[in-house]
Design a protein around this nucleic acid. Structure first.
Lengths: 247, 247
DNA sequence: GGGAAATGACTAGCATGCCAGAACTTAAGC
DNA sequence: GCTTAAGTTCTGGCATGCTAGTCATTTCCC
């Protein structure tokens, strides 16, 4: 993390204490972040069981914080708790992905329009800077870096409007989408396409054209959805039939 | 779930165990529902403290289920936990309401378009039936009944498409909006207006015109937002300056 | 040998006890 | 009378022990 447009995994801890003021982080929040990162990184594969006792031992704490953290994750549907049976990392179904993208598209399109209406000069500057970084990352073929910038780009617009709740919803959606994304190989040249699509969004926002901004954002995310579809079609085994089963 | 248009407060328990199969409801889930209903009904006013011990005594259980339930509510931002200080029912700020409506508008507009694309005959039938009930309730001046039908109407569209995640997001938004709605007096004649707006949405969906459906849904919710604005302007004391403070 | 029942190990849920920290109260000092 | 500081009493966080329920394996019976 650190340099550049930092913030790498800052959005990981958005769920729980983010709302409150900056208290000392509780143990529960810590293990929450740990498990969540493990799930999102794929270290804990979808469907795998979560051994709470082992976690307690590894993290050196009692079962209480671990259970609390797992409960939070269950609330986010990242894990599924089966009473008196076990806790499992939730699987992702293709319909889920489609639905997540539908919601994301709807919100981000409207937010883009809102940003165009607001017409913040500082936002435009930040977007421009982000675009330059993206261009550099795309050119250098730094996929990991580009992805971070991609996530950040979308966050920039939302947060500049002070839409914390929308940001939170989008974060949760993204946390689910992130898992499937890790399974996929970003196709060569996709960064360039994404970059130009981002540029179009920025242009519409800078031009204070809400309709164009919404359309650009919508089109961009529709193409992202299409990419998901292609990958799902090519790798059907990676997705669960239904989001319910875990075996 | 089941037939008819009933289901009054079924959406209350959407948060936690809804995802899992139908196990026996845990105590924590029970108090979760209890507190949530109390908050939404206004029995627990925004800003008021939650006395966990008293709750334990009144419900006849230990602190654990109560704490778990409060934690869940904190996750939904319905209560704010201040460590070593207390748990409080969160206040609602006007910006929050605006943002909730923004998100709701975005999602529901897209969902309406999706419903128009899907073109389900059974959905059209159910919507027609709901409209007839709404007309009756509006005519009879049954505001409470009309509100239930209103909520249900919007749910019908989402659930008919199997968009469970979107439904959940909307439920959470609605649970927040519900609190302020209770403070407001539904203006006379609003039911009739709402009814005609709903009818327009149904018409567009039945005509399989996604653009018109989205526009109708958007317009409907924009007018709802405008109503909120008017009430907020007339009753500024009901809203918190910021969503952070609780005193 | 195959099937059904019993047993064992595992899980989550819950109760209880203790600790640290913050706010309020009260009393002492100026 | 006002300020300040110490003490009390709240709060939530955490550790631990126990209970009940489920799953898997094994064992016994047919």
């Amino acid at each position: 993390m650190s340099a550049g447009l930092q913030g790498s995994a800052a959005w990981l801890g958005t769920g729980p204490d983010a709302g409150g003021s900056s208290r000392r982080p509780s143990k529960a929040s810590h293990v929450y972040g740990t498990i969540k990162e493990a799930i999102l990184s794929g270290e804990l594969a979808p469907g795998s069981a979560i051994d709470k006792l082992a976690l307690c031992e590894r993290l050196g704490m009692s079962r209480f914080p671990v259970s609390t953290a797992v409960n939070r994750l269950a609330f986010e549907k990242l894990v599924i708790i089966e009473p008196q049976h076990g806790s499992f990392v939730s699987r992702i179904s293709l319909p889920d992905v489609r639905e997540f993208m539908l919601i994301r598209r709807a919100i981000e399109a409207d937010v883009a329009a809102e940003a165009a209406l607001a017409g913040s000069a500082t936002l435009n500057d930040e977007l421009d800077r982000s675009l330059r970084y993206q261009a550099a990352a795309a050119e250098a073929g730094d996929h990991a870096g580009f992805y971070r910038l991609d996530v950040e780009f979308h966050q920039l617009i939302v947060q500049s409007l002070g839409l914390n709740h929308a940001a939170e919803v989008l974060d949760q959606l993204l946390s689910h989408l992130e898992r499937v994304r890790r399974l996929l190989i970003t196709p060569a040249g996709r960064s360039q396409t994404t970059y130009s699509e981002h540029r179009e969004i920025v242009r519409a926002i800078a031009a204070r054209d809400p309709l164009a901004a919404a359309a650009a954002a919508r089109g961009h995310l529709e193409r992202t959805s299409a990419m998901f579809e292609v990958f799902a079609r090519d790798n059907p085994k990676l997705f669960a039939e239904s989001s319910a089963d875990h075996a």
